[in-house]
Nucleic acid binder design. Structure first.
Lengths: 208, 208
DNA sequence: CCTTATTTCTAGACACTGTCAAGTTCCAGA
DNA sequence: TCTGGAACTTGACAGTGTCTAGAAATAAGG
């Protein structure tokens, strides 16, 4: 239960696991998912090529842990936006979506790993817990807007799916560079971008 | 300019390129993008492991050609839906979206290759031509609904982005199995599914 | 303090991958 | 018939993830 001792020699690192996660994130953002290499991560962390497998049970295990960490930071990014927004339910929902887009644009490869890749093990305990927490967050926000609980009301759950689809689709199109030609959001003043995002995200709501 | 002769011997296949594309699609749908293997494609087509590289200039080349073929069939799937729909612009737009979802659900790995992977070379001539054709199709449908051209009118282009985001996000969430818990579209009567899809897709439209 | 167990990490081997260069087989035009 | 070039094979290469055996360090028990 006590904290790990600091590294005292060159053989035993002391706390390799978090160091490997950090190295993996650097490697992921620079090399991309498709050419992500376990051995490159090991080299980056200064350990032998077999070390990561011992801590994370293989490549998929490391990517699963990294993706779980990503979900925590996705929720952080959403909370960050919501703190600056008006407290009414609708503003909070829009802010949540804006945070989703912030995270996607600032962590493109990590976002793709979390949501568009089949490499992470979705049955993993930590991963499914934190990804369900992200989903729950949206469900609560929708409930606050509509006044009905998505988990019991089918109309509200359809609203959840619509909102999620909209924000997720927009994120995917942006980070894959597919919006560059029609309207390049990444080269746009933040205020203008936010306004368009809000316009688009609001459409997912069926309030009548 | 004459058609290729049929294969007359075992050395020269005669028309290996399309055979490799077909083999690649089988391999893709069964193994998935992440573990797609050029050599497995070669084995499937009954040729040596170096043959595919000669025709498609490497793995990326083959996947690029396959993704381009996928776009053609995506457009086919959309047209198929539209033929059965009412001729008014709004019904045609919805049908186009439904065809998009049909294709995604029936060709999950191919869809992911086309739209969520960075493996295909998006600067490739054929690929960019056919993917822009798919985009143009949506732009025309939006123009028919709104009466203004997205390429000159910013509001209309925002409408294009919203519609695309919505249908694309929904497709991604479905094929990655992320809608299974809240509402499992794949285990649903087609009519009910279509109705929900229409409900969701219509939200992207801002008609007031 | 010494011995023993256990965890952490290394090192080597294995099968597999994509790519490249060189060689073989076949076709087509002169 | 000859010759150039296209189609395809073959072998080699560096790189990958995973597995196993072993070395190095810490922790536990006497």
């Amino acid at each position: 239960m006590t904290a790990r001792k600091p590294p005292v020699n060159s053989y035993h690192h002391g706390s390799l696991a978090p160091a490997l996660i950090a190295a993996a994130e650097q490697e992921l953002s620079q090399a991309g998912i498709e050419s992500f290499s376990l051995r490159a991560v090991a080299k980056r962390a200064g350990v032998s090529h077999g070390a990561p497998a011992h801590h994370f049970d293989g490549k998929n295990g490391l990517l699963t842990a990294l993706a779980a960490e990503g979900y925590r930071r996705l929720i952080d990014a959403q909370n960050e936006r919501q703190k600056k927004a008006q407290p009414d339910p609708l503003s909070q929902l829009i802010a949540s979506g804006s945070g989703y887009l912030d995270f996607a644009m600032q962590n493109q490869e990590l976002f793709r790993l979390m949501l568009a890749s089949s490499l992470p093990d979705r049955d993993n305990e930590h991963f499914s817990a934190v990804s369900m927490a992200a989903f729950d967050k949206l469900a609560v926000e929708i409930r606050n807007v509509l006044g009905t609980d998505p988990y019991t009301d089918r109309v509200a759950m359809t609203q959840v799916m619509a909102s999620w689809s909209m924000v997720h689709g927009l994120a995917e199109l942006i980070i894959s560079g597919r919006t560059k030609m029609p309207m390049d959001f990444t080269q746009m003043p933040a205020a203008q971008r936010d306004a368009i995002f809000e316009d688009i995200l609001l459409r997912a709501l069926k309030t009548n």
